Computed example of a mutant assay.
Amino acid sequence: MARRAPTGPVLGRALLILEAFGPRHTSLTLTELARRAGLPLSTVHRLAGELVTWGALERDAGGRYSVGLRLWEVGSLAPRGLGLRERALPYLEDLSRVTHENVQLAVREGAEVVFVERIAGSRAVPVHTRVGGRFALSATGVGLVLLAHAPHDVQEQVIGGPIERFTARTVTDPKALRRMLADVRTNGFSVSDRQVTDDALSVGAPIRDPAGAVVAAVSLVVRYGTVSAHALSPLLLSSARAISRALESR
């Protein structure tokens, strides 16, 4: 649920209304919107009307609200996601065609992963991620790469927990997680072995900017038991290097 700030400035209250939406709450009544935003119904009614007029929200015939296409259009212009996605997409598509598996591209935002692109392969195992969605840094293939190369304070924030558990194999022990991050830096790729779902293995690799800093990560997510992480890693690392070289042309 969105943070409660009923007396904040107009922009802050409008943002609380937008924050009320989520993967499981894509369509809300005015009452639900007010409750999830923690704002008075009259305030939400007024602001929601202005957001509909601008296009940030849409209202259907039944009176339910959803995120508007105009907001998506503006959000898609975010330079960190847009430029990266444009340059990476040909290589992501090649990787998908060769493997027929899930291919994901992500960046770090604070202590979370934000997925910039995802291509579902023809025989891909179902995943919980979506484009524009956020996830814990500590569990996914892309997240482990980004966490391993994150600033020290971000690593300590995540390792200091609490670390969310998704399956019985999710690594929540701080010492074990530190060892995993050290292995990522040593090996050049990450392995998330059934940490998010019981049937998926994810391998991630870093994407670097021209200065050598890790700015994103790419991963393959496959059904556990069909192929080993070490068999996937050379192809994934090659794709990550190609995307990194493509960023040099910016």
Rank of each mutant, 00 (worst) to 15 (best):
R130I: 14
R130L: 14
V131G: 03
V131W: 04
R134L: 13
R134N: 04
A136H: 03
A136D: 13
A136R: 02
L137C: 11
L137F: 06
S138Q: 10
S138H: 15
A139W: 05
T140P: 00
G141E: 09
G141L: 03
V142F: 09
V142T: 15
G143M: 06
G143I: 07
L144F: 08
L144R: 13
L144W: 07
V145Q: 05
V145I: 13
L147I: 12
L147N: 02
A148V: 00
A148C: 10
H149D: 03
H149A: 07
H149I: 11
A150V: 05
A150H: 04
D153G: 00
D153R: 13
V154A: 07
Q155I: 01
Q155N: 06
E156G: 05
Q157D: 05
Q157P: 03
V158W: 01
V158K: 00
V158A: 08
V158Y: 02
I159H: 00
I159C: 03
G160H: 01
G160L: 10
G161I: 02
G161S: 14
G161K: 04
I163K: 10
E164W: 00
R165H: 04
R165D: 00
F166T: 01
T167H: 02
T167Q: 02
A168W: 02
R169Q: 14
R169T: 09
V171I: 15
P174Q: 06
P174V: 04
K175A: 15
K175L: 05
A176T: 12
L177F: 09
L177V: 06
L177I: 04
L177T: 01
R178C: 10
R178M: 06
R179E: 14
M180I: 04
L181Y: 03
A182M: 01
D183E: 14
D183G: 03
V184Q: 07
V184S: 12
V184A: 12
R185P: 03
N187E: 13
G188M: 08
F189R: 01
D193S: 15
D193W: 00
R194D: 05
R194S: 11
R194G: 07
R194E: 11
Q195G: 12
V196N: 08
V196Q: 09
T197E: 07
D198G: 11
D198T: 14
D198E: 15
D199G: 05
A200R: 06
A200E: 13
A200K: 08
S202M: 09
S202W: 09
V203S: 10
G204T: 11
G204N: 02
I207T: 07
I207R: 03
I207S: 02
R208M: 10
R208C: 09
D209F: 10
D209M: 08
P210N: 02
P210E: 03
G212E: 14
A213K: 06
V214C: 07
V215E: 08
V215F: 04
V215N: 05
V215C: 12
A217F: 07
V218N: 03
S219T: 10
V221F: 00
V222I: 12
R223D: 05
Y224F: 15
Y224L: 15
G225K: 05
G225E: 07
T226S: 15
V227S: 02
A229Y: 08
L232Y: 09
L232Q: 09
P234H: 04
L235R: 10
L236Q: 09
L236A: 11
L236N: 07
L236D: 09
L237R: 12
S239V: 14
A240V: 15
A240G: 11
A240M: 10
